[in-house]
Amino acid sequence: MEEGYATEIMATVSQLGSRERNDHLKARIGIDRMGHRVRPGLYALGSPTRSSPVLVTANYSLSFDALRSALPGRNAWILALDTKGINVWCAAGKGTFGTEELLKAVQATDLASKVDGRTLILPQLGAPGVSAHQVRKGCDFKVEYGPVRAEDLPAYLDTGECTEEMRTVRFKLKDRLVLAPVEVRNYRWLMVLMILAAVFVPFYGPLVLALTLGGIFLFPALLPRLPGKDLSLRGMVLGGLLVTPFALYQLLFWSGGFVIAAVAAEYMLMIAWLGYIGLNFTGSTTFTSRTGVRREIFAYIPWIAGMALLGGALSVVTLALYAGWL
């Protein structure tokens, strides 16, 4: 694909097809991670006039597509900044969705000669990277922050106002579940190993796979119902809960001195593992501050590491008991 801003206006539509859906699926599970971008530059959505609104977004295909698909039947300009294919929120944090890039895009596309309006509508989550008053100083355009979510754009465009609701990030079931594929992606090689283990290693293979999937999918879904304030602690609780049926099965149907040690080892290891998965979720929400994450790391990593070590030691004891060495 060509690099840099396109100088010509590009055309786009609000309808997404199977090609986009395929691209989104790949992006979510991490296939071709660098490839999910659109050419940075100015797009005509529908048939905008010189007075149609100008909406700014990132050149990550998921961000771009979320924007245009939220505007069926509308005519607008879309200015895609060159964020190197990173979403608005993360790019704003890094500054690639930022004041400088915005000024560069305005200049590179010669926006001022193509539209009459002098307002740029930015997604609110781009605000950590953009300084509205600096943009004002740097070009003829002024920045307005639109709603957090693209789905609220039609209402915003009609009224010109954002409600408190539209300005606030939320963490509903849907918002939490989109985090799950991110986790799958982070652990994808481990997942392959686990699936193999689940097929070939009796009992323990399925146990580890079930617990990991539980951590990735059930954890975000059940989050508000799990006790505790910190995500790590809630992960640990879920780990304890999910191990219990396996442990009960062992206690009921297995016999031998090793069973108690085996059950104890599983509890330790799985509580530590899900605590760790929970800790990682801390990083992917728009809720935890850096100070908060830091605090959580310091509060929980020693516990998680300690439990993992203890669990490892107990596993050795279990093996020894099972083999009759003790």
Binding site: G93, N280, T282, R290
Partner: peptide, 15 residues
């Protein structure tokens, strides 16, 4: 103090 990097990166850096 917002600094660079998202929370996921802090965890990685710390580890």
């Amino acid at each position: 103090d917002s600094g660079v990097g998202c929370a996921a990166a802090i965890i990685k850096a710390a580890l």
